[in-house]
Simulated assay, not measured.
Amino acid sequence: MDDEAIGRLFALLRVRSPAELRETLGVVPRALEERIAEIEQYLDFTQRLGVGEYVQLDLTIVRGLAYYTGIVFELFDARGEFRAIAGGGRYDTLLASLGGADLPALGFGMGDVVLGELLRARGLMRVSAKAIDVWVAGGERTVDLQKVMSLATALRAEGLAVEYSLKPQQIAKQFRAASTAGAKRAVVVPLATDAVGGTEYTFRNLDSGEQTKYPDADAVVRALAATRGAR
Protein backbone atom coordinates (compact mmCIF):
# COMPACT_ATOMS: atom_id res chain seq x y z
CA MET A 1 0.00 0.00 0.00
CA ASP A 2 1.53 3.31 -1.08
CA ASP A 3 1.51 6.56 0.91
CA GLU A 4 -1.47 7.95 -1.00
CA ALA A 5 -3.60 4.89 -0.23
CA ILE A 6 -2.58 5.02 3.43
CA GLY A 7 -3.53 8.70 3.55
CA ARG A 8 -6.96 8.00 2.06
CA LEU A 9 -7.50 5.17 4.54
CA PHE A 10 -6.77 7.40 7.51
CA ALA A 11 -8.99 10.09 6.00
CA LEU A 12 -11.85 7.57 5.97
CA LEU A 13 -11.31 6.86 9.65
CA ARG A 14 -11.83 10.57 10.40
CA VAL A 15 -15.17 10.72 8.57
CA ARG A 16 -18.13 11.66 10.80
CA SER A 17 -21.02 12.08 8.35
CA PRO A 18 -22.34 10.56 5.09
CA ALA A 19 -21.53 13.81 3.26
CA GLU A 20 -17.90 13.63 4.43
CA LEU A 21 -17.78 10.00 3.35
CA ARG A 22 -18.90 10.81 -0.19
CA GLU A 23 -16.44 13.68 -0.39
CA THR A 24 -13.56 11.54 0.84
CA LEU A 25 -14.33 8.65 -1.51
CA GLY A 26 -14.85 10.82 -4.55
CA VAL A 27 -16.30 8.11 -6.78
CA VAL A 28 -18.89 6.07 -4.85
CA PRO A 29 -19.80 2.60 -6.18
CA ARG A 30 -23.54 2.00 -6.51
CA ALA A 31 -23.65 -0.75 -3.87
CA LEU A 32 -21.85 1.47 -1.38
CA GLU A 33 -24.09 4.42 -2.20
CA GLU A 34 -27.10 2.33 -1.17
CA ARG A 35 -25.49 1.68 2.21
CA ILE A 36 -24.62 5.35 2.67
CA ALA A 37 -28.23 6.29 1.87
CA GLU A 38 -29.37 3.78 4.49
CA ILE A 39 -27.11 5.39 7.08
CA GLU A 40 -28.47 8.81 6.14
CA GLN A 41 -31.99 7.52 6.73
CA TYR A 42 -31.03 6.22 10.18
CA LEU A 43 -29.43 9.54 11.08
CA ASP A 44 -32.56 11.34 9.88
CA PHE A 45 -34.63 9.14 12.18
CA THR A 46 -32.45 10.10 15.15
CA GLN A 47 -32.98 13.78 14.34
CA ARG A 48 -36.74 13.32 14.23
CA LEU A 49 -36.60 11.49 17.56
CA GLY A 50 -34.74 14.41 19.12
CA VAL A 51 -31.45 12.61 19.75
CA GLY A 52 -29.60 13.45 16.54
CA GLU A 53 -27.08 15.70 18.29
CA TYR A 54 -25.84 12.67 20.23
CA VAL A 55 -25.27 10.46 17.17
CA GLN A 56 -22.46 10.53 14.65
CA LEU A 57 -21.01 8.21 12.04
CA ASP A 58 -17.82 6.44 13.14
CA LEU A 59 -16.16 4.04 10.69
CA THR A 60 -13.59 2.97 13.30
CA ILE A 61 -16.10 0.92 15.32
CA VAL A 62 -15.55 -2.80 14.91
CA ARG A 63 -17.61 -5.19 17.00
CA GLY A 64 -15.86 -8.45 17.81
CA LEU A 65 -18.71 -10.79 16.86
CA ALA A 66 -19.49 -12.08 13.37
CA TYR A 67 -23.28 -12.34 13.63
CA TYR A 68 -24.01 -8.66 12.99
CA THR A 69 -25.78 -8.05 9.69
CA GLY A 70 -26.27 -4.28 9.76
CA ILE A 71 -25.28 -1.15 11.61
CA VAL A 72 -23.27 -1.56 14.80
CA PHE A 73 -22.96 1.09 17.48
CA GLU A 74 -21.31 2.07 20.73
CA LEU A 75 -22.52 4.48 23.41
CA PHE A 76 -20.20 6.88 25.23
CA ASP A 77 -20.66 9.60 27.81
CA ALA A 78 -21.27 13.01 26.24
CA ARG A 79 -17.86 14.34 27.32
CA GLY A 80 -16.00 11.34 25.93
CA GLU A 81 -14.11 10.75 29.18
CA PHE A 82 -14.77 7.01 29.49
CA ARG A 83 -14.63 3.92 27.34
CA ALA A 84 -17.84 2.62 25.78
CA ILE A 85 -20.74 2.26 28.20
CA ALA A 86 -22.67 -0.02 25.83
CA GLY A 87 -22.37 -1.52 22.39
CA GLY A 88 -24.40 -3.62 20.00
CA GLY A 89 -26.00 -3.75 16.60
CA ARG A 90 -28.40 -5.39 14.17
CA TYR A 91 -28.45 -9.17 13.71
CA ASP A 92 -31.16 -10.44 11.39
CA THR A 93 -30.12 -14.10 11.15
CA LEU A 94 -28.83 -14.90 14.64
CA LEU A 95 -32.03 -16.30 16.15
CA ALA A 96 -32.69 -18.59 13.18
CA SER A 97 -29.09 -19.83 13.17
CA LEU A 98 -29.55 -20.91 16.80
CA GLY A 99 -32.73 -22.83 16.01
CA GLY A 100 -35.18 -20.09 16.90
CA ALA A 101 -37.61 -18.01 14.89
CA ASP A 102 -36.48 -16.31 11.69
CA LEU A 103 -36.79 -12.90 13.28
CA PRO A 104 -34.67 -9.77 12.78
CA ALA A 105 -33.37 -8.26 15.98
CA LEU A 106 -31.27 -5.52 17.48
CA GLY A 107 -29.57 -5.65 20.84
CA PHE A 108 -26.77 -4.36 22.99
CA GLY A 109 -24.72 -5.18 26.04
CA MET A 110 -23.55 -2.74 28.68
CA GLY A 111 -20.99 -2.70 31.46
CA ASP A 112 -21.95 -1.81 35.00
CA VAL A 113 -18.35 -0.90 35.89
CA VAL A 114 -18.12 1.93 33.34
CA LEU A 115 -21.61 3.12 34.24
CA GLY A 116 -20.62 3.18 37.91
CA GLU A 117 -17.48 5.19 37.12
CA LEU A 118 -19.55 7.68 35.13
CA LEU A 119 -22.15 8.11 37.88
CA ARG A 120 -19.44 8.68 40.48
CA ALA A 121 -17.67 11.22 38.27
CA ARG A 122 -20.92 13.15 37.81
CA GLY A 123 -21.83 12.99 41.49
CA LEU A 124 -24.89 10.87 40.77
CA MET A 125 -23.92 7.69 42.60
CA ARG A 126 -26.13 7.11 45.61
CA VAL A 127 -24.01 6.68 48.72
CA SER A 128 -26.43 4.19 50.20
CA ALA A 129 -29.83 2.75 49.52
CA LYS A 130 -32.91 4.53 50.82
CA ALA A 131 -33.58 3.66 54.45
CA ILE A 132 -36.45 1.26 55.03
CA ASP A 133 -39.51 2.85 56.62
CA VAL A 134 -41.17 -0.38 57.66
CA TRP A 135 -40.75 -4.14 57.37
CA VAL A 136 -43.89 -6.21 56.82
CA ALA A 137 -43.76 -9.66 58.42
CA GLY A 138 -46.04 -12.64 58.00
CA GLY A 139 -46.35 -16.35 58.61
CA GLU A 140 -45.21 -19.32 56.58
CA ARG A 141 -48.38 -19.96 54.57
CA THR A 142 -49.47 -18.63 51.18
CA VAL A 143 -52.38 -16.71 52.69
CA ASP A 144 -49.92 -14.91 55.00
CA LEU A 145 -47.72 -13.90 52.06
CA GLN A 146 -50.77 -12.58 50.23
CA LYS A 147 -51.57 -10.30 53.17
CA VAL A 148 -47.94 -9.20 53.39
CA MET A 149 -47.79 -8.31 49.70
CA SER A 150 -51.11 -6.44 49.80
CA LEU A 151 -50.05 -4.36 52.81
CA ALA A 152 -46.59 -3.68 51.36
CA THR A 153 -48.16 -2.45 48.11
CA ALA A 154 -50.57 -0.16 49.97
CA LEU A 155 -47.76 1.31 52.08
CA ARG A 156 -45.53 1.86 49.05
CA ALA A 157 -48.40 3.70 47.37
CA GLU A 158 -48.16 6.15 50.28
CA GLY A 159 -44.50 6.78 49.50
CA LEU A 160 -43.04 4.53 52.19
CA ALA A 161 -39.98 2.34 51.64
CA VAL A 162 -41.14 -1.18 52.45
CA GLU A 163 -39.44 -4.57 52.49
CA TYR A 164 -40.54 -8.08 53.40
CA SER A 165 -39.12 -11.59 53.37
CA LEU A 166 -39.18 -13.34 50.01
CA LYS A 167 -39.26 -16.77 51.62
CA PRO A 168 -41.26 -18.29 54.50
CA GLN A 169 -39.58 -17.59 57.84
CA GLN A 170 -40.43 -17.53 61.50
CA ILE A 171 -41.44 -14.10 62.76
CA ALA A 172 -38.35 -13.82 64.98
CA LYS A 173 -36.06 -14.43 61.99
CA GLN A 174 -37.95 -11.82 60.00
CA PHE A 175 -37.43 -9.28 62.79
CA ARG A 176 -33.70 -10.02 62.74
CA ALA A 177 -33.63 -9.63 58.96
CA ALA A 178 -35.49 -6.33 59.30
CA SER A 179 -32.97 -5.02 61.84
CA THR A 180 -30.06 -6.13 59.65
CA ALA A 181 -31.63 -4.25 56.72
CA GLY A 182 -31.85 -1.10 58.84
CA ALA A 183 -35.58 -1.08 59.52
CA LYS A 184 -36.70 0.34 62.86
CA ARG A 185 -40.36 -0.56 62.54
CA ALA A 186 -42.27 -3.68 61.55
CA VAL A 187 -45.86 -4.71 61.04
CA VAL A 188 -47.02 -8.30 61.51
CA VAL A 189 -50.09 -9.27 59.50
CA PRO A 190 -52.75 -11.58 61.01
CA LEU A 191 -51.37 -15.09 60.72
CA ALA A 192 -53.22 -18.02 59.20
CA THR A 193 -52.68 -19.88 62.48
CA ASP A 194 -54.50 -17.19 64.49
CA ALA A 195 -57.91 -17.93 65.93
CA VAL A 196 -60.75 -17.79 63.43
CA GLY A 197 -61.75 -14.20 62.92
CA GLY A 198 -58.39 -12.78 64.01
CA THR A 199 -57.77 -9.68 61.93
CA GLU A 200 -55.50 -7.51 64.06
CA TYR A 201 -52.25 -6.15 62.65
CA THR A 202 -49.40 -5.68 65.10
CA PHE A 203 -47.04 -2.72 64.81
CA ARG A 204 -43.68 -3.23 66.54
CA ASN A 205 -40.85 -0.84 67.35
CA LEU A 206 -37.81 -3.03 66.71
CA ASP A 207 -35.60 -1.02 69.07
CA SER A 208 -37.84 -0.85 72.13
CA GLY A 209 -40.07 -3.85 71.47
CA GLU A 210 -43.16 -1.69 72.06
CA GLN A 211 -46.22 -2.95 70.18
CA THR A 212 -49.49 -1.41 68.99
CA LYS A 213 -52.52 -3.25 67.63
CA TYR A 214 -54.53 -2.11 64.60
CA PRO A 215 -57.92 -3.54 63.60
CA ASP A 216 -57.21 -3.84 59.86
CA ALA A 217 -54.77 -3.04 57.06
CA ASP A 218 -56.37 0.32 56.29
CA ALA A 219 -55.74 1.48 59.84
CA VAL A 220 -52.08 0.47 59.53
CA VAL A 221 -51.69 2.39 56.28
CA ARG A 222 -53.29 5.53 57.73
CA ALA A 223 -51.15 5.42 60.85
CA LEU A 224 -47.85 4.86 59.08
CA ALA A 225 -48.61 7.34 56.29
CA ALA A 226 -49.13 9.98 58.98
CA THR A 227 -45.63 9.31 60.33
CA ARG A 228 -43.90 9.19 56.94
CA GLY A 229 -40.21 9.97 57.32
CA ALA A 230 -39.98 8.76 60.92
CA ARG A 231 -37.81 5.67 61.22
Rank of each mutant, 00 (worst) to 15 (best):
R122G: 10
F108R: 14
S208Y: 05
E34V: 09
V162F: 01
L151D: 00
T60G: 11
E200V: 12
G159Q: 04
D58Q: 03
G229E: 03
G87N: 02
V136F: 03
L59N: 10
T153E: 11
T212E: 13
N205S: 06
A84Q: 08
I132A: 01
R204P: 02
G182K: 02
T60W: 10
A5D: 12
G197N: 09
F10Q: 14
A225Q: 01
V189R: 00
R228Q: 03
G80Y: 04
G88S: 07
E158D: 12
L106A: 15
G109R: 03
P215T: 12
A225S: 05
R156K: 14
A192R: 09
D2G: 15
G88D: 08
V196G: 08
V187M: 01
G159W: 03
F82Y: 06
K167Y: 12
P168Q: 08
A186T: 02
A181G: 08
G89F: 00
Q174F: 02
T24W: 04
T153D: 09
Q211V: 06
L75Q: 10
D112Y: 13
Y54N: 12
M110Q: 14
V62W: 08
Y91Q: 10
L49V: 13
A186E: 00
T24P: 01
E200T: 15
A78P: 11
F203S: 00
R79Y: 10
F108H: 14
I171A: 07
K213Y: 04
L119G: 05
Q211D: 02
Y68L: 06
A96H: 09
K184N: 03
E163P: 05
L95T: 13
V28M: 04
A225F: 02
D207L: 11
L224H: 00
T202E: 13
R90C: 10
E163N: 11
T46W: 12
G64Q: 05
G89I: 00
E117D: 13
E163D: 12
A230V: 11
A105K: 07
